[in-house]
Nucleic acid binder design. Sequence first.
DNA 1: CACATACGAGAGCGCCGCTCTCGTTGGTTC
DNA 2: GAACCAACGAGAGCGGCGCTCTCGTATGTG
Lengths: 274, 274
Amino acid sequence: MSSTPRTARALARETLTQQILDAARARLRSDGPAGLSLRAVARDVDMVSSAVYRYFPSRDALLTRLLIDSYGELGETVERADAGIERDDTGGRWLAACRALRTWCVERPGDFALLYGTPIPGYAAPQDTVEPATRVIRVLVRIVGDAYAAGARALPPPGAANGGGSADASSVGTGAPAGEAGAGPGEVGAPAGAHTDVDDLVASARDYVVQRGLAPEDVATESVVRTLMAWSQLFGTVSFELFGHLVGSVSDTTRWYDEVATRLGADLGIPAPA
Amino acid sequence: MSSTPRTARALARETLTQQILDAARARLRSDGPAGLSLRAVARDVDMVSSAVYRYFPSRDALLTRLLIDSYGELGETVERADAGIERDDTGGRWLAACRALRTWCVERPGDFALLYGTPIPGYAAPQDTVEPATRVIRVLVRIVGDAYAAGARALPPPGAANGGGSADASSVGTGAPAGEAGAGPGEVGAPAGAHTDVDDLVASARDYVVQRGLAPEDVATESVVRTLMAWSQLFGTVSFELFGHLVGSVSDTTRWYDEVATRLGADLGIPAPA
DNA sequence: CACATACGAGAGCGCCGCTCTCGTTGGTTC
DNA sequence: GAACCAACGAGAGCGGCGCTCTCGTATGTG
Protein backbone atom coordinates (compact mmCIF):
# COMPACT_ATOMS: atom_id res chain seq x y z
CA MET A 1 0.00 0.00 0.00
CA SER A 2 2.07 2.91 1.20
CA SER A 3 5.79 2.81 0.63
CA THR A 4 8.01 3.31 3.62
CA PRO A 5 8.05 7.00 4.38
CA ARG A 6 11.42 8.55 3.69
CA THR A 7 11.24 11.59 5.86
CA ALA A 8 10.57 11.97 9.55
CA ARG A 9 7.65 14.18 8.76
CA ALA A 10 6.03 11.66 6.48
CA LEU A 11 6.52 8.99 9.10
CA ALA A 12 4.97 11.16 11.75
CA ARG A 13 2.05 11.90 9.49
CA GLU A 14 1.39 8.27 8.84
CA THR A 15 1.65 7.38 12.51
CA LEU A 16 -0.60 10.16 13.65
CA THR A 17 -3.17 9.45 11.00
CA GLN A 18 -3.34 5.90 12.21
CA GLN A 19 -3.55 6.99 15.84
CA ILE A 20 -6.45 9.24 15.02
CA LEU A 21 -8.18 6.44 13.18
CA ASP A 22 -7.63 4.05 16.06
CA ALA A 23 -8.97 6.52 18.57
CA ALA A 24 -11.94 7.26 16.34
CA ARG A 25 -12.70 3.57 15.98
CA ALA A 26 -12.56 3.14 19.74
CA ARG A 27 -14.99 6.03 20.12
CA LEU A 28 -17.22 4.56 17.45
CA ARG A 29 -17.28 1.27 19.30
CA SER A 30 -18.12 2.83 22.63
CA ASP A 31 -20.39 5.69 21.67
CA GLY A 32 -21.81 4.79 18.29
CA PRO A 33 -21.64 6.90 15.15
CA ALA A 34 -23.70 9.78 16.44
CA GLY A 35 -21.52 10.08 19.51
CA LEU A 36 -18.32 10.18 17.57
CA SER A 37 -16.96 13.66 18.05
CA LEU A 38 -13.86 14.94 16.41
CA ARG A 39 -12.99 16.92 19.50
CA ALA A 40 -13.12 13.88 21.71
CA VAL A 41 -10.93 11.99 19.31
CA ALA A 42 -8.51 14.90 19.35
CA ARG A 43 -8.33 14.77 23.12
CA ASP A 44 -7.71 11.05 23.01
CA VAL A 45 -4.64 11.56 20.90
CA ASP A 46 -3.50 14.63 22.86
CA MET A 47 -4.14 17.13 20.17
CA VAL A 48 -6.14 20.25 19.97
CA SER A 49 -9.16 19.82 17.77
CA SER A 50 -7.99 22.08 15.01
CA ALA A 51 -4.85 20.01 14.59
CA VAL A 52 -6.88 16.99 13.58
CA TYR A 53 -8.01 18.92 10.53
CA ARG A 54 -4.45 18.62 9.21
CA TYR A 55 -5.20 14.91 8.81
CA PHE A 56 -8.88 14.78 8.00
CA PRO A 57 -10.58 17.70 6.32
CA SER A 58 -13.85 17.11 8.15
CA ARG A 59 -15.67 14.83 10.50
CA ASP A 60 -17.42 13.36 7.49
CA ALA A 61 -14.10 12.44 5.93
CA LEU A 62 -13.14 10.64 9.10
CA LEU A 63 -16.48 8.84 9.06
CA THR A 64 -15.99 7.88 5.44
CA ARG A 65 -12.66 6.33 6.24
CA LEU A 66 -14.14 4.39 9.13
CA LEU A 67 -17.01 3.35 6.90
CA ILE A 68 -14.72 1.94 4.24
CA ASP A 69 -12.52 0.19 6.76
CA SER A 70 -15.48 -1.36 8.53
CA TYR A 71 -17.06 -2.58 5.32
CA GLY A 72 -13.72 -4.09 4.44
CA GLU A 73 -13.35 -5.77 7.81
CA LEU A 74 -16.84 -7.21 7.68
CA GLY A 75 -16.41 -8.33 4.10
CA GLU A 76 -13.12 -10.00 4.89
CA THR A 77 -14.59 -11.72 7.93
CA VAL A 78 -17.42 -13.19 5.92
CA GLU A 79 -15.14 -14.15 3.06
CA ARG A 80 -12.84 -15.96 5.42
CA ALA A 81 -15.69 -17.80 7.07
CA ASP A 82 -16.82 -18.95 3.64
CA ALA A 83 -13.34 -19.93 2.59
CA GLY A 84 -12.91 -21.99 5.73
CA ILE A 85 -15.48 -24.55 4.63
CA GLU A 86 -15.15 -27.23 2.00
CA ARG A 87 -16.28 -25.74 -1.28
CA ASP A 88 -18.84 -28.43 -2.04
CA ASP A 89 -20.52 -28.02 1.32
CA THR A 90 -22.64 -25.10 0.29
CA GLY A 91 -24.91 -25.58 3.29
CA GLY A 92 -21.95 -25.35 5.64
CA ARG A 93 -20.60 -22.33 3.82
CA TRP A 94 -23.97 -20.60 3.95
CA LEU A 95 -24.32 -21.08 7.68
CA ALA A 96 -20.72 -20.12 8.35
CA ALA A 97 -21.00 -16.94 6.31
CA CYS A 98 -24.29 -15.98 7.93
CA ARG A 99 -22.92 -16.60 11.39
CA ALA A 100 -19.75 -14.67 10.73
CA LEU A 101 -21.84 -11.77 9.53
CA ARG A 102 -23.89 -11.60 12.68
CA THR A 103 -20.99 -12.20 15.03
CA TRP A 104 -19.06 -9.33 13.57
CA CYS A 105 -22.06 -7.01 13.84
CA VAL A 106 -23.00 -8.01 17.36
CA GLU A 107 -19.47 -7.56 18.60
CA ARG A 108 -19.30 -4.11 17.04
CA PRO A 109 -22.71 -2.52 17.34
CA GLY A 110 -21.24 0.90 16.70
CA ASP A 111 -19.77 -0.24 13.43
CA PHE A 112 -23.01 -1.94 12.51
CA ALA A 113 -24.95 1.24 13.17
CA LEU A 114 -22.51 3.15 11.00
CA LEU A 115 -22.84 0.70 8.12
CA TYR A 116 -26.47 -0.31 8.26
CA GLY A 117 -28.20 2.10 10.63
CA THR A 118 -29.65 5.53 10.04
CA PRO A 119 -27.48 7.48 7.65
CA ILE A 120 -25.78 10.47 9.20
CA PRO A 121 -27.90 13.49 8.29
CA GLY A 122 -26.37 15.54 5.54
CA TYR A 123 -23.79 12.90 4.86
CA ALA A 124 -23.73 11.20 1.50
CA ALA A 125 -21.47 8.20 1.25
CA PRO A 126 -18.95 8.81 -1.53
CA GLN A 127 -18.34 6.40 -4.37
CA ASP A 128 -15.35 4.76 -2.69
CA THR A 129 -17.65 3.11 -0.21
CA VAL A 130 -19.68 1.25 -2.80
CA GLU A 131 -17.24 -1.50 -3.66
CA PRO A 132 -16.37 -2.49 -0.08
CA ALA A 133 -20.05 -2.42 0.78
CA THR A 134 -20.78 -5.17 -1.73
CA ARG A 135 -18.38 -7.76 -0.37
CA VAL A 136 -20.84 -9.45 1.95
CA ILE A 137 -23.58 -9.87 -0.59
CA ARG A 138 -21.01 -11.09 -3.11
CA VAL A 139 -20.05 -13.90 -0.77
CA LEU A 140 -23.68 -14.86 -0.25
CA VAL A 141 -24.31 -14.80 -3.98
CA ARG A 142 -21.32 -16.97 -4.70
CA ILE A 143 -22.50 -19.59 -2.26
CA VAL A 144 -25.97 -19.58 -3.76
CA GLY A 145 -24.44 -19.69 -7.21
CA ASP A 146 -22.34 -22.70 -6.36
CA ALA A 147 -25.34 -24.44 -4.83
CA TYR A 148 -27.37 -23.58 -7.90
CA ALA A 149 -24.76 -25.08 -10.16
CA ALA A 150 -25.02 -28.21 -8.04
CA GLY A 151 -28.74 -28.37 -8.58
CA ALA A 152 -30.20 -26.36 -5.73
CA ARG A 153 -33.34 -24.52 -6.65
CA ALA A 154 -35.13 -21.83 -4.72
CA LEU A 155 -38.76 -22.14 -3.76
CA PRO A 156 -41.07 -21.68 -6.71
CA PRO A 157 -42.52 -18.20 -6.91
CA PRO A 158 -45.96 -17.84 -5.42
CA GLY A 159 -48.61 -18.06 -8.02
CA ALA A 160 -46.58 -20.45 -10.12
CA ALA A 161 -48.17 -23.73 -10.92
CA ASN A 162 -46.29 -26.67 -9.67
CA GLY A 163 -44.69 -27.57 -12.88
CA GLY A 164 -43.96 -30.81 -14.59
CA GLY A 165 -43.97 -32.76 -11.43
CA SER A 166 -40.22 -32.80 -11.39
CA ALA A 167 -38.06 -31.87 -8.49
CA ASP A 168 -38.86 -28.24 -8.16
CA ALA A 169 -38.40 -28.05 -4.46
CA SER A 170 -36.41 -31.17 -4.30
CA SER A 171 -33.36 -29.87 -2.60
CA VAL A 172 -35.08 -27.71 -0.08
CA GLY A 173 -33.38 -28.23 3.19
CA THR A 174 -33.37 -31.94 3.34
CA GLY A 175 -32.64 -32.81 -0.19
CA ALA A 176 -35.54 -35.19 -0.06
CA PRO A 177 -37.54 -34.80 -3.22
CA ALA A 178 -41.00 -33.50 -2.63
CA GLY A 179 -41.38 -33.81 -6.27
CA GLU A 180 -44.16 -36.08 -7.16
CA ALA A 181 -46.57 -34.03 -5.18
CA GLY A 182 -46.67 -31.77 -8.14
CA ALA A 183 -49.67 -30.30 -9.75
CA GLY A 184 -50.75 -27.86 -7.18
CA PRO A 185 -54.13 -26.39 -7.27
CA GLY A 186 -54.63 -22.97 -8.35
CA GLU A 187 -53.79 -20.59 -11.06
CA VAL A 188 -51.08 -21.09 -13.53
CA GLY A 189 -48.65 -18.20 -13.32
CA ALA A 190 -46.54 -17.43 -16.31
CA PRO A 191 -45.59 -20.28 -18.58
CA ALA A 192 -42.26 -21.75 -17.61
CA GLY A 193 -39.40 -19.70 -18.93
CA ALA A 194 -41.58 -16.80 -19.87
CA HIS A 195 -40.34 -13.33 -19.22
CA THR A 196 -42.00 -11.84 -16.17
CA ASP A 197 -42.10 -8.56 -14.35
CA VAL A 198 -39.88 -10.01 -11.71
CA ASP A 199 -37.16 -10.61 -14.25
CA ASP A 200 -37.07 -6.89 -15.01
CA LEU A 201 -37.16 -6.04 -11.37
CA VAL A 202 -33.90 -7.73 -10.51
CA ALA A 203 -32.38 -7.66 -13.96
CA SER A 204 -29.49 -5.45 -12.93
CA ALA A 205 -28.70 -7.64 -9.93
CA ARG A 206 -28.84 -10.73 -12.08
CA ASP A 207 -26.57 -9.21 -14.71
CA TYR A 208 -24.13 -8.18 -12.06
CA VAL A 209 -23.74 -11.62 -10.54
CA VAL A 210 -23.64 -13.45 -13.84
CA GLN A 211 -21.10 -11.09 -15.36
CA ARG A 212 -18.86 -11.54 -12.38
CA GLY A 213 -19.15 -15.27 -12.57
CA LEU A 214 -20.70 -15.47 -9.13
CA ALA A 215 -23.54 -17.58 -10.41
CA PRO A 216 -24.17 -19.69 -13.51
CA GLU A 217 -25.49 -17.91 -16.56
CA ASP A 218 -28.73 -19.81 -16.39
CA VAL A 219 -29.37 -18.94 -12.75
CA ALA A 220 -33.07 -18.59 -12.13
CA THR A 221 -34.49 -15.18 -11.37
CA GLU A 222 -36.18 -16.75 -8.41
CA SER A 223 -32.84 -17.62 -6.88
CA VAL A 224 -31.72 -14.04 -7.33
CA VAL A 225 -34.90 -12.83 -5.68
CA ARG A 226 -34.53 -15.18 -2.75
CA THR A 227 -30.88 -14.25 -2.34
CA LEU A 228 -31.71 -10.57 -2.17
CA MET A 229 -34.44 -11.39 0.29
CA ALA A 230 -32.08 -13.45 2.41
CA TRP A 231 -29.55 -10.63 2.39
CA SER A 232 -31.97 -8.06 3.69
CA GLN A 233 -33.50 -10.59 6.07
CA LEU A 234 -30.12 -11.33 7.65
CA PHE A 235 -29.34 -7.68 8.23
CA GLY A 236 -32.91 -7.01 9.22
CA THR A 237 -32.64 -9.69 11.87
CA VAL A 238 -29.39 -8.28 13.19
CA SER A 239 -30.87 -4.81 13.12
CA PHE A 240 -33.90 -5.93 15.10
CA GLU A 241 -31.65 -7.63 17.60
CA LEU A 242 -29.24 -4.75 18.09
CA PHE A 243 -31.90 -2.07 18.04
CA GLY A 244 -34.02 -3.88 20.59
CA HIS A 245 -37.05 -4.96 18.60
CA LEU A 246 -36.72 -8.64 19.45
CA VAL A 247 -36.82 -8.11 23.19
CA GLY A 248 -39.69 -10.15 24.56
CA SER A 249 -40.22 -12.17 21.40
CA VAL A 250 -37.10 -14.25 21.18
CA SER A 251 -35.19 -15.61 24.10
CA ASP A 252 -31.85 -16.47 22.55
CA THR A 253 -30.89 -14.23 19.69
CA THR A 254 -27.92 -16.33 18.66
CA ARG A 255 -30.03 -19.41 18.19
CA TRP A 256 -32.81 -17.40 16.66
CA TYR A 257 -30.43 -16.07 14.05
CA ASP A 258 -29.29 -19.60 13.28
CA GLU A 259 -32.87 -20.65 12.75
CA VAL A 260 -33.44 -17.74 10.42
CA ALA A 261 -30.28 -18.40 8.45
CA THR A 262 -31.12 -22.08 8.14
CA ARG A 263 -34.58 -21.36 6.80
CA LEU A 264 -33.26 -18.83 4.34
CA GLY A 265 -30.78 -21.39 3.10
CA ALA A 266 -33.56 -23.93 2.78
CA ASP A 267 -35.72 -21.47 0.87
CA LEU A 268 -32.85 -21.10 -1.54
CA GLY A 269 -32.59 -24.82 -1.96
CA ILE A 270 -29.20 -24.95 -0.34
CA PRO A 271 -28.73 -28.38 1.23
CA ALA A 272 -28.22 -28.75 4.95
CA PRO A 273 -24.62 -28.44 6.16
CA ALA A 274 -22.60 -31.57 5.77
CA MET B 1 -58.34 12.03 27.24
CA SER B 2 -57.93 15.58 28.47
CA SER B 3 -60.97 17.41 29.66
CA THR B 4 -61.61 20.83 28.27
CA PRO B 5 -59.27 23.18 30.02
CA ARG B 6 -61.15 25.61 32.22
CA THR B 7 -58.56 28.31 32.63
CA ALA B 8 -56.88 30.42 30.00
CA ARG B 9 -53.51 29.24 31.23
CA ALA B 10 -54.39 25.58 30.88
CA LEU B 11 -55.72 26.24 27.41
CA ALA B 12 -52.58 28.07 26.43
CA ARG B 13 -50.48 25.25 27.79
CA GLU B 14 -52.32 22.67 25.78
CA THR B 15 -52.16 24.71 22.63
CA LEU B 16 -48.49 25.48 22.97
CA THR B 17 -47.61 21.89 23.78
CA GLN B 18 -49.32 20.84 20.59
CA GLN B 19 -47.61 23.56 18.60
CA ILE B 20 -44.26 22.40 19.86
CA LEU B 21 -45.08 18.82 18.97
CA ASP B 22 -46.21 19.85 15.51
CA ALA B 23 -43.08 21.83 14.89
CA ALA B 24 -40.95 19.00 16.21
CA ARG B 25 -42.68 16.53 13.94
CA ALA B 26 -42.08 18.80 10.97
CA ARG B 27 -38.42 18.99 11.89
CA LEU B 28 -38.27 15.26 12.32
CA ARG B 29 -39.73 14.79 8.87
CA SER B 30 -37.32 17.17 7.21
CA ASP B 31 -34.12 16.61 9.15
CA GLY B 32 -34.40 13.18 10.68
CA PRO B 33 -34.09 12.29 14.34
CA ALA B 34 -30.45 13.28 14.71
CA GLY B 35 -31.14 16.69 13.22
CA LEU B 36 -34.03 17.41 15.52
CA SER B 37 -32.85 20.25 17.71
CA LEU B 38 -34.87 21.68 20.52
CA ARG B 39 -33.56 25.14 19.77
CA ALA B 40 -34.73 24.96 16.18
CA VAL B 41 -38.15 23.83 17.31
CA ALA B 42 -38.22 26.72 19.76
CA ARG B 43 -37.47 29.16 16.96
CA ASP B 44 -40.20 27.62 14.84
CA VAL B 45 -42.78 28.38 17.50
CA ASP B 46 -41.31 31.81 18.31
CA MET B 47 -39.99 30.94 21.69
CA VAL B 48 -36.64 31.16 23.29
CA SER B 49 -35.15 27.75 23.83
CA SER B 50 -35.38 27.80 27.59
CA ALA B 51 -39.11 28.37 27.40
CA VAL B 52 -39.62 25.04 25.69
CA TYR B 53 -38.36 23.38 28.84
CA ARG B 54 -41.56 24.50 30.55
CA TYR B 55 -43.33 22.00 28.31
CA PHE B 56 -40.82 19.22 27.83
CA PRO B 57 -38.20 18.55 30.47
CA SER B 58 -35.62 17.49 27.91
CA ARG B 59 -35.03 16.76 24.29
CA ASP B 60 -35.33 13.09 25.08
CA ALA B 61 -38.80 13.63 26.51
CA LEU B 62 -39.81 15.33 23.31
CA LEU B 63 -38.37 12.44 21.32
CA THR B 64 -40.23 9.96 23.48
CA ARG B 65 -43.47 11.70 22.78
CA LEU B 66 -42.79 11.71 19.05
CA LEU B 67 -41.81 8.06 19.28
CA ILE B 68 -45.06 7.06 20.91
CA ASP B 69 -47.14 9.13 18.53
CA SER B 70 -45.36 7.73 15.50
CA TYR B 71 -45.73 4.15 16.64
CA GLY B 72 -49.39 4.85 17.16
CA GLU B 73 -49.82 6.40 13.75
CA LEU B 74 -48.07 3.54 12.01
CA GLY B 75 -50.00 0.98 14.01
CA GLU B 76 -53.27 2.61 13.21
CA THR B 77 -52.42 2.86 9.54
CA VAL B 78 -51.66 -0.83 9.34
CA GLU B 79 -54.71 -1.76 11.39
CA ARG B 80 -56.94 0.26 9.11
CA ALA B 81 -55.45 -1.30 6.00
CA ASP B 82 -56.16 -4.71 7.47
CA ALA B 83 -59.65 -3.78 8.50
CA GLY B 84 -60.43 -2.51 5.01
CA ILE B 85 -60.29 -6.00 3.53
CA GLU B 86 -62.81 -8.77 3.82
CA ARG B 87 -61.92 -10.81 6.85
CA ASP B 88 -61.78 -14.14 5.03
CA ASP B 89 -59.42 -12.81 2.43
CA THR B 90 -56.29 -13.31 4.48
CA GLY B 91 -54.10 -12.99 1.42
CA GLY B 92 -55.60 -9.61 0.63
CA ARG B 93 -55.27 -8.50 4.22
CA TRP B 94 -51.64 -9.59 4.35
CA LEU B 95 -50.71 -7.67 1.25
CA ALA B 96 -52.69 -4.62 2.30
CA ALA B 97 -51.10 -4.55 5.73
CA CYS B 98 -47.62 -5.02 4.32
CA ARG B 99 -48.14 -2.30 1.77
CA ALA B 100 -49.57 0.12 4.30
CA LEU B 101 -46.55 -0.48 6.47
CA ARG B 102 -44.07 0.39 3.77
CA THR B 103 -46.02 3.32 2.42
CA TRP B 104 -46.14 4.94 5.82
CA CYS B 105 -42.41 4.44 6.32
CA VAL B 106 -41.40 5.63 2.88
CA GLU B 107 -43.50 8.75 3.19
CA ARG B 108 -41.95 9.54 6.57
CA PRO B 109 -38.34 8.45 6.47
CA GLY B 110 -37.56 10.57 9.50
CA ASP B 111 -40.20 8.82 11.53
CA PHE B 112 -39.00 5.48 10.28
CA ALA B 113 -35.45 6.28 11.32
CA LEU B 114 -36.70 7.28 14.75
CA LEU B 115 -38.66 4.06 15.19
CA TYR B 116 -36.48 1.49 13.50
CA GLY B 117 -33.11 3.11 12.90
CA THR B 118 -30.11 3.55 15.12
CA PRO B 119 -31.20 4.28 18.66
CA ILE B 120 -30.30 7.73 19.87
CA PRO B 121 -27.10 7.38 21.91
CA GLY B 122 -27.73 7.53 25.60
CA TYR B 123 -31.45 7.36 25.08
CA ALA B 124 -33.38 4.41 26.44
CA ALA B 125 -36.96 4.17 25.32
CA PRO B 126 -39.21 4.19 28.38
CA GLN B 127 -41.83 1.56 29.05
CA ASP B 128 -44.66 3.62 27.59
CA THR B 129 -43.28 3.03 24.14
CA VAL B 130 -43.53 -0.73 24.30
CA GLU B 131 -47.23 -1.17 23.79
CA PRO B 132 -47.59 1.16 20.79
CA ALA B 133 -44.53 -0.46 19.26
CA THR B 134 -46.28 -3.83 19.12
CA ARG B 135 -49.29 -2.79 17.11
CA VAL B 136 -47.86 -3.60 13.71
CA ILE B 137 -46.68 -7.06 14.59
CA ARG B 138 -50.00 -7.71 16.30
CA VAL B 139 -51.81 -7.02 13.06
CA LEU B 140 -49.51 -9.31 11.13
CA VAL B 141 -49.94 -12.03 13.72
CA ARG B 142 -53.70 -11.76 13.63
CA ILE B 143 -53.75 -12.19 9.88
CA VAL B 144 -51.50 -15.20 10.09
CA GLY B 145 -53.61 -16.55 12.92
CA ASP B 146 -56.80 -16.20 10.92
CA ALA B 147 -55.16 -17.86 7.95
CA TYR B 148 -53.88 -20.62 10.18
CA ALA B 149 -57.34 -21.22 11.54
CA ALA B 150 -58.49 -21.54 7.93
CA GLY B 151 -55.89 -24.17 7.27
CA ALA B 152 -52.86 -22.27 6.11
CA ARG B 153 -49.61 -23.84 7.14
CA ALA B 154 -46.15 -22.39 6.97
CA LEU B 155 -43.35 -24.09 5.15
CA PRO B 156 -42.06 -27.11 6.98
CA PRO B 157 -38.92 -26.42 8.96
CA PRO B 158 -35.71 -27.36 7.27
CA GLY B 159 -34.41 -30.67 8.42
CA ALA B 160 -37.91 -32.05 8.60
CA ALA B 161 -38.35 -35.17 6.57
CA ASN B 162 -40.92 -34.79 3.88
CA GLY B 163 -43.76 -36.74 5.26
CA GLY B 164 -46.43 -38.60 3.49
CA GLY B 165 -45.64 -37.23 0.12
CA SER B 166 -48.91 -35.42 0.18
CA ALA B 167 -49.47 -31.88 -0.79
CA ASP B 168 -46.90 -30.28 1.40
CA ALA B 169 -46.71 -27.10 -0.46
CA SER B 170 -50.23 -27.18 -1.68
CA SER B 171 -51.45 -24.13 0.11
CA VAL B 172 -48.47 -22.04 -0.59
CA GLY B 173 -49.60 -18.95 -2.31
CA THR B 174 -52.26 -20.57 -4.33
CA GLY B 175 -55.13 -20.09 -2.02
CA ALA B 176 -56.12 -23.67 -1.60
CA PRO B 177 -56.70 -24.35 2.06
CA ALA B 178 -54.50 -27.18 3.08
CA GLY B 179 -57.08 -27.91 5.65
CA GLU B 180 -58.70 -31.04 4.56
CA ALA B 181 -55.41 -32.51 3.61
CA GLY B 182 -55.34 -32.91 7.30
CA ALA B 183 -52.47 -34.36 9.02
CA GLY B 184 -50.63 -32.40 7.12
CA PRO B 185 -48.06 -30.55 6.18
CA GLY B 186 -45.17 -30.19 7.91
CA GLU B 187 -43.34 -31.02 10.79
CA VAL B 188 -42.44 -34.57 10.77
CA GLY B 189 -38.79 -33.96 11.47
CA ALA B 190 -39.39 -34.49 15.07
CA PRO B 191 -42.24 -36.79 15.89
CA ALA B 192 -45.47 -34.89 15.63
CA GLY B 193 -46.00 -32.73 18.64
CA ALA B 194 -42.53 -33.31 19.94
CA HIS B 195 -40.95 -30.51 21.83
CA THR B 196 -38.03 -28.96 20.03
CA ASP B 197 -35.43 -26.31 20.68
CA VAL B 198 -37.29 -23.99 18.39
CA ASP B 199 -40.36 -24.23 20.58
CA ASP B 200 -38.39 -22.85 23.50
CA LEU B 201 -36.86 -20.18 21.37
CA VAL B 202 -40.13 -18.52 20.49
CA ALA B 203 -42.14 -19.77 23.45
CA SER B 204 -42.73 -16.30 24.85
CA ALA B 205 -43.86 -14.99 21.49
CA ARG B 206 -46.16 -17.95 21.04
CA ASP B 207 -47.66 -17.52 24.50
CA TYR B 208 -48.20 -13.85 23.85
CA VAL B 209 -50.17 -14.33 20.66
CA VAL B 210 -52.19 -17.26 21.92
CA GLN B 211 -53.11 -15.57 25.17
CA ARG B 212 -54.29 -12.54 23.30
CA GLY B 213 -56.36 -14.66 20.98
CA LEU B 214 -54.44 -13.48 17.95
CA ALA B 215 -53.86 -17.02 16.82
CA PRO B 216 -55.46 -20.39 17.55
CA GLU B 217 -54.17 -22.27 20.57
CA ASP B 218 -52.78 -25.00 18.40
CA VAL B 219 -50.85 -22.67 16.16
CA ALA B 220 -47.67 -24.31 14.98
CA THR B 221 -44.37 -23.01 16.23
CA GLU B 222 -43.26 -22.93 12.65
CA SER B 223 -45.92 -20.37 11.84
CA VAL B 224 -44.74 -18.26 14.73
CA VAL B 225 -41.19 -18.53 13.48
CA ARG B 226 -42.13 -17.57 9.96
CA THR B 227 -44.22 -14.67 11.19
CA LEU B 228 -41.35 -13.27 13.19
CA MET B 229 -39.12 -13.73 10.18
CA ALA B 230 -41.61 -11.97 7.94
CA TRP B 231 -41.84 -9.11 10.40
CA SER B 232 -38.12 -8.48 10.45
CA GLN B 233 -37.88 -9.09 6.74
CA LEU B 234 -40.48 -6.44 5.98
CA PHE B 235 -38.74 -3.83 8.07
CA GLY B 236 -35.35 -5.02 6.87
CA THR B 237 -36.50 -4.46 3.31
CA VAL B 238 -37.77 -0.99 4.09
CA SER B 239 -34.59 -0.24 5.98
CA PHE B 240 -32.46 -1.34 3.05
CA GLU B 241 -34.54 0.79 0.73
CA LEU B 242 -34.51 3.93 2.82
CA PHE B 243 -30.90 3.61 3.88
CA GLY B 244 -29.72 3.08 0.34
CA HIS B 245 -28.60 -0.53 0.30
CA LEU B 246 -30.82 -1.57 -2.56
CA VAL B 247 -29.47 1.00 -4.97
CA GLY B 248 -28.17 -0.83 -8.01
CA SER B 249 -29.79 -4.14 -7.15
CA VAL B 250 -33.46 -3.42 -7.51
CA SER B 251 -34.97 -1.08 -10.02
CA ASP B 252 -38.41 -0.47 -8.56
CA THR B 253 -38.53 -0.64 -4.80
CA THR B 254 -42.30 -0.53 -4.63
CA ARG B 255 -42.67 -3.56 -6.81
CA TRP B 256 -39.75 -5.24 -5.12
CA TYR B 257 -41.42 -4.85 -1.76
CA ASP B 258 -44.62 -6.36 -3.15
CA GLU B 259 -42.67 -9.35 -4.37
CA VAL B 260 -41.09 -9.77 -0.96
CA ALA B 261 -44.39 -9.45 0.86
CA THR B 262 -46.04 -11.93 -1.49
CA ARG B 263 -43.34 -14.51 -0.93
CA LEU B 264 -43.45 -14.04 2.81
CA GLY B 265 -47.18 -14.61 2.72
CA ALA B 266 -46.69 -17.71 0.60
CA ASP B 267 -44.06 -19.03 3.00
CA LEU B 268 -46.64 -18.66 5.74
CA GLY B 269 -49.17 -20.58 3.74
CA ILE B 270 -51.38 -17.56 3.35
CA PRO B 271 -53.42 -17.90 0.17
CA ALA B 272 -53.09 -15.42 -2.64
CA PRO B 273 -55.31 -12.33 -2.42
CA ALA B 274 -58.81 -12.90 -3.61
C1' DC C 1 21.61 29.31 3.90
C1' DA C 2 17.11 30.79 2.23
C1' DC C 3 12.72 29.58 1.16
C1' DA C 4 8.44 27.08 1.16
C1' DT C 5 5.64 23.97 3.19
C1' DA C 6 3.59 21.28 6.94
C1' DC C 7 2.25 21.50 11.39
C1' DG C 8 0.28 22.46 16.33
C1' DA C 9 -1.81 25.72 19.22
C1' DG C 10 -5.02 29.18 20.21
C1' DA C 11 -8.89 32.16 19.60
C1' DG C 12 -13.26 32.57 17.83
C1' DC C 13 -17.72 31.72 15.03
C1' DG C 14 -22.37 29.84 15.44
C1' DC C 15 -24.69 25.84 16.74
C1' DC C 16 -26.31 22.49 20.43
C1' DG C 17 -28.67 20.77 25.29
C1' DC C 18 -29.47 22.45 29.52
C1' DT C 19 -29.60 25.48 33.94
C1' DC C 20 -30.45 29.49 36.61
C1' DT C 21 -32.20 33.96 37.55
C1' DC C 22 -35.51 37.52 37.16
C1' DG C 23 -39.58 40.15 36.13
C1' DT C 24 -44.38 39.37 34.82
C1' DT C 25 -48.75 37.46 34.62
C1' DG C 26 -52.71 34.23 35.75
C1' DG C 27 -55.34 32.01 39.22
C1' DT C 28 -56.49 31.27 44.04
C1' DT C 29 -57.39 32.59 48.77
C1' DC C 30 -58.80 35.61 52.19
C1' DG D 1 -60.20 44.10 46.10
C1' DA D 2 -55.67 42.73 48.17
C1' DA D 3 -52.21 39.30 48.92
C1' DC D 4 -50.01 35.46 47.64
C1' DC D 5 -48.08 31.66 44.82
C1' DA D 6 -47.23 29.10 40.89
C1' DA D 7 -46.62 29.13 36.04
C1' DC D 8 -44.38 31.34 32.51
C1' DG D 9 -41.13 33.79 28.99
C1' DA D 10 -36.86 35.99 28.38
C1' DG D 11 -32.08 36.38 28.97
C1' DA D 12 -27.50 35.14 30.29
C1' DG D 13 -24.40 31.62 30.75
C1' DC D 14 -22.23 26.75 31.11
C1' DG D 15 -19.65 23.29 28.47
C1' DG D 16 -19.46 20.82 24.13
C1' DC D 17 -19.80 20.48 19.16
C1' DG D 18 -17.85 21.23 13.90
C1' DC D 19 -15.14 24.22 11.66
C1' DT D 20 -12.10 28.42 10.28
C1' DC D 21 -8.34 31.55 10.64
C1' DT D 22 -4.12 33.25 12.30
C1' DC D 23 0.43 32.83 14.02
C1' DG D 24 4.83 30.99 15.47
C1' DT D 25 7.68 26.97 14.76
C1' DA D 26 9.60 22.91 12.93
C1' DT D 27 10.89 20.35 8.77
C1' DG D 28 12.41 19.42 4.28
C1' DT D 29 14.16 21.43 -0.30
C1' DG D 30 16.52 24.50 -3.63
